[in-house]
Simulated assay, not measured.
Amino acid sequence: MKRILYAIAALMMTAPGAFAMGPWKDGCIDQTPCEIGDRSYHVRIPDDWDGETPMPVLLHFHGWQRQGTLIVQHQRISGATRRRGVLLVAPNGLGRSWDFWRAGTPDVAFARAVLEDVRATYPVLDDQIFVSGYSWGSNMAWRFVCEDGADIAALLAISGTLPQNEDCSTAPGEVRQVYGLGDQVLDFPYGPGGDTEFPVYLWRQKYGCGAGIAEGAWNARDFLTFQRTTWDCPDGDVSLDIHPGGHFIPHGWIARQLDQMLGLPPSYP
């Protein structure tokens, strides 16, 4: 028994500084929520983090009837962040949903409070704050950057948007959207005349974009092919990935976006 106690003590004295700081000192990590007022969020620390180096952050809004407990263990989300040195932050929606329907929703203020709480706890890179979401969480991610996105480096939106006539007071540095043409949950938002570039019309107008550039096909996995269109605009960049599938988080999509934005070689997962 004494040997075990000595080993534990030695480990505590030699562990990285991360284990002596941060919310997880009270058990607030992974499946255990971090309390903020009467609400909560979850965090997943990247693999091999030394406890000191500032990290990029991915704030991801869960889909309908989900919670952050799923996000921090989701292979297509946390599997991407934890291998790339990115701190994953997953807020919990009230009633397992989000209020994104109207301007001024309290969920925007809640998400900002979560980000500020994370900033106060962890060393983060303020110029590499990314916001993501899937399904209704994607709608919420749009709402957040539409109203409070001036300091957000990029929006990574999956299978969800806002109405393209929404009047956004702010915008992120860039927008990356993916959508399935076969989506039967949140139908693909075709524009007039069947325009398949319409899902990012709002941001193209906001950024003063001209004509898009067809970048062609790419794959993260052999069984799903994306067709990418990009816009290099005066006030921000936009990319739209379209695939023939339905309503899901595509394998490798978040990972590929992070690789590109962080200047890493593309890899999977």
Rank of each mutant, 00 (worst) to 15 (best):
I29H: 09
I29Y: 12
D30Y: 12
T32H: 11
I36N: 05
G37M: 08
G37T: 08
D38N: 14
R39F: 11
R44G: 05
R44Q: 12
D47W: 15
D47L: 15
W49F: 07
P54C: 08
V57W: 04
H60P: 02
G68T: 01
T69M: 08
L70Q: 10
I71C: 03
I71N: 00
V72S: 01
R76Q: 11
I77A: 01
I77L: 02
S78H: 10
S78M: 07
S78P: 08
A80P: 09
R82L: 06
R83P: 01
R84A: 09
G85P: 00
V86C: 01
L87S: 02
L88E: 02
L88C: 01
L88I: 00
A90I: 00
A90T: 00
P91F: 01
N92R: 00
L94W: 13
L94M: 13
R96D: 01
R96I: 01
D99R: 06
F100K: 10
F100T: 05
F100S: 09
R102I: 06
R102Y: 09
A103S: 09
D107K: 11
D107G: 05
D107E: 15
V108I: 14
A109Q: 14
F110I: 04
A111F: 02
A111V: 05
A113S: 13
V114E: 08
V114A: 10
E116W: 06
E116T: 10
D117I: 08
D117W: 07
V118C: 02
A120P: 04
A120E: 08
T121A: 14
P123I: 14
P123M: 06
V124N: 05
V124W: 10
D127K: 09
Q128D: 12
V131H: 13
S132F: 07
